[in-house]
C-alpha cells in the first residue's frame, strides 16, 4: 500500500513542547494526557530553546509557538518569551490559571519592546461553569476567567480557544456564548477560536476514539491543499528531539531527528488524528496566519 506522504514545504512555524507533558490541570479531553504527574516528556531549558531559535534563523522560520503541558509551570517562561520575541512573533497556549503580576508585567514589557506580537491563547471549554468544569476540572472556570481578566487589564487581547467537546452544539451558539461571557468579564473585543477534539489520549476514553474508516488515504491527498496541514509547514521541539507536530509527539514515528535540519524529512499520515487535521485544517495555527490555495 502506498502511504499518504506529506513533505515539509517550508518550516514556517516552529513549536516548543516547553513543559513536556506536565500540567497543573488534568482535562478529560487532553490528546496527550497531560496531568500534574505526567513527566513522560520533560521541560526544555533556555539553552536548548536558544539553540533551536538560532538554528531557525537561516531556515527562515516565520513564527514561534509554545505549548505543553502548561507553559507557565516553567519558571523561565517570561525569559523564554522575552528571548523569542527578539527572533520573531510568539504565541503561547495556556490554561490561564498561573499568571501573577510579575509574569504579566514582564510579558507586557517584552511585547512592547518587540516589533512582533505576543499572542496568548487561553483554553476554556464551556461558556457555562458546569460545562467547562466537567472537562477541565472543578473550579477551573472561575480561575480561567480570572486569568483572562488579568490579561485584559494588562492590555492583552487573548485568543479564547474553545474545544468543541459537545458534538451537538452549533459553532454559532458557542461563538455567541463566549463573546457574551467575555464581555461580561470586561473583555470588550473578544477573539474566539473554536477547535474540534482530537480523539486520541484521554479524549478517546471520554467519548470515543476514531472509527476504522477515519484515516487519511493516498487518494484523499490528491488535489488537496496540503497547506492546511500543520506537518506541511511546522515542526515541534521536545526534550527528546524534533517531532512532526504537537498532536503526535507520543507516537514513536513522530520524532524525525535531533535537529531542525534532520526533521525536514516528509511524514506519512498513518495516524488517525491526522484525519481531524485533514477534515478541519489549520487547527493549531492562529487565525492571522491561515491561508489556503487559490
Amino acid at each position: 500500500m502506498r502511504l499518504p506522504i506529506v513533505p515539509l514545504a517550508h518550516l514556517d512555524d516552529l513549536w516548543f513542547q516547553v513543559t513536556g507533558t506536565l500540567c497543573n490541570l488534568a482535562c478529560t479531553h487532553c490528546f496527550i494526557r497531560c496531568t500534574p504527574h505526567n513527566r513522560s516528556f520533560g521541560f526544555l531549558d533556555l539553552g536548548t530553546i536558544r539553540r533551536s531559535l538560532d538554528e531557525s534563523v537561516p531556515l527562515g522560520v516565520k513564527e514561534y509557538y509554545f505549548t505543553g503541558g502548561e507553559p507557565f509551570l516553567h519558571p523561565d517562561m517570561p525569559a523564554i518569551l522575552e528571548l523569542t520575541l527578539r527572533y520573531g512573533p510568539a504565541t503561547v497556549l495556556t490554561n490561564g490559571t498561573l499568571f501573577n503580576d510579575e509574569i504579566l508585567r514582564r510579558l507586557r514589557a517584552a511585547e512592547d519592546a518587540s516589533p512582533y506580537s505576543l499572542e496568548i491563547r487561553v483554553s476554556i471549554d464551556g461558556y457555562r461553569r458546569t460545562e467547562n468544569d466537567a472537562v477541565r476540572g472543578h473550579g477551573t472556570f472561575d480561575r480561567i476567567l480570572c486569568g483572562i481578566r488579568q490579561l485584559v487589564e494588562r492590555e492583552f487581547m487573548p485568543i479564547i480557544t474553545v474545544t468543541k467537546t459537545d458534538d451537538n452544539q452549533g459553532d454559532a451558539d458557542l461563538f455567541d456564548g463566549f463573546v457574551r461571557l467575555m464581555r461580561e468579564n470586561g473583555y470588550t473585543r473578544p477573539r474566539v477560536k473554536i477547535l474540534p477534539t482530537l480523539r486520541i489520549g484521554a479524549e478517546a476514553e471520554r467519548r470515543r476514539g476514531y472509527g476504522t474508516e477515519e484515516r487519511v488515504s493516498m487518494e484523499m491527498l490528491e488535489g488537496f491543499d496540503q497547506g492546511t496541514l500543520l506537518c506541511n509547514h511546522a515542526r515541534i521541539v521536545s526534550d527528546r528531539g524534533v517531532h512532526v507536530c504537537p498532536i503526535l509527539i507520543e507516537a514513536s514515528d513522530s520524532r524525525l531527528g535531533a535537529t531542525l535540519a534532520e526533521a525536514e524529512q516528509p511524514f506519512a499520515l498513518t495516524h488517525q488524528a491526522c484525519f481531524t487535521c485533514y477534515q478541519y485544517g489549520t487547527i493549531c495555527s492562529n487565525p492571522t496566519s491561515q491561508s489556503h490555495d487559490v
Binding site: 537561516p58 531556515l59 527562515g60 516565520k62 512573533p89 516589533p115 512582533y116 492571522t288 496566519s289 491561508s291
Partner: peptide, 21 residues
C-alpha cells in the same frame, strides 16, 4: 510570493522569513 492569500503582517512576520523569501 508563494501564496496569493498569505497575510504578511508587520507583527507576525519575522525578518529572517522575509530574507528567506
Amino acid at each position: 510570493p508563494r501564496r496569493t492569500n498569505e497575510f504578511l503582517w508587520e507583527s507576525t512576520t519575522s525578518t529572517h522569513f522575509l530574507e528567506h523569501l
